[in-house]
Amino acid sequence: MRVLLIIPAYNEEENILNTCNKIKEFSKELDFVVINDGSKDNTLKILQENSINHINLIKNLGIGGAVQTGYKYAYENGYDIAIQFDGDGQHDVNYVSNICKPIIEGKADMAIGTRYLDKSASSFQSTFMRRLGSKIICALIKITTKTKVTDPTSGFRAVNKDIIEVFANEYPSDYPEPESIVNITNLGYKIMDVPVSMNEREGGKSSINVWKSAHYMIKVSLAIIIDSLNKRRVK
């Protein structure tokens, strides 16, 4: 089983080296690729100087386009499992084996690391507003696809070979995390939640701003409803 960590990075000079070192400490056999999404800071320099395996996007694409590049790389290189992993230190590499487990056992095609399931393990449950937003998106996904997820915006997720191919060909660009859940269920694939704990950002600034949240909620709801109108295909 060949496993690839896809690490999208935009202006992550403070965190990226730390994240990569932690992955190397965790396992020497785990492959990872950092997608530098046209960072304006020294991210690229750090990646080159430390000879970290990376793809440098020649222009900024945004999170959806960056992650899809990772899936294309995974597809071209024949990986069996691809895991999305944030470069900002929010995700804990120790949960990689947990998140791979349902996929290796064939219980699910996609596993999503959720911070809301295991309350004792989670040191960081995020703010009230974020949790509320998550709940609303969950409810929408449940209504439109009858699939239960608990952390629809989690960027910590693992997918099997079939979905790597699906994502390499077509990946939502607007709100990739919740939208891809809807698309994947529409195609008849199975999704499973895996409890993980997430850290608060170690450095840098989160790209999500409080004032943008309301705007985000409206657009993401619309995106989910429109995506769910796509034809359902049973695998």
């Binding site: 793809i55 440098n56 020649i58 386009g65 899809q68 294309k72 071209e76």
Partner: peptide
């Protein structure tokens, strides 16, 4: 445009 940028970046790598 997006797929062009992706393909070129992958090729460059």
């Amino acid at each position: 445009n997006v797929s062009l940028i992706q393909e070129i970046s992958l090729l460059k790598k």
